[in-house]
């Protein structure tokens, strides 16, 4: 039982690392009106993007379909 839970957690984290890294390198600028990011700022944003990756992906997809 606990093995299943741990495996699910590991999968969630792995997907978070991939999504989070992609988001802070190319996605975040879309949501930062008129703002740019320093490199440390991107690193600071990474944990949040990795943690909330399903919601981040959802917003990212929606933002892409809004702008041609």
């Amino acid at each position: 039982m606990s093995t299943v839970l741990l495996a699910a957690l590991a999968l969630y984290v792995a997907a978070g690392v991939v999504t989070g890294a992609a988001f802070v390198t190319v996605g975040a600028a879309r949501f930062a009106h008129h703002m740019t990011f320093t490199l440390p700022a991107r690193l600071v944003l990474f944990p949040g993007a990795a943690l909330l990756w399903p919601y981040v992906l959802y917003r990212w997809r929606r933002a892409r379909s809004d702008e041609p």
Binding site: A28, F31, A41, L45, P47, G48, L51, L52, R59
Partner: peptide
């Protein structure tokens, strides 16, 4: 506490 700390940057407030 992790969620709060991870989203404490201004960027997340806007997002």
């Amino acid at each position: 506490m992790l969620t709060m700390a991870a989203t404490s940057h201004d960027f997340w407030l806007g997002f």
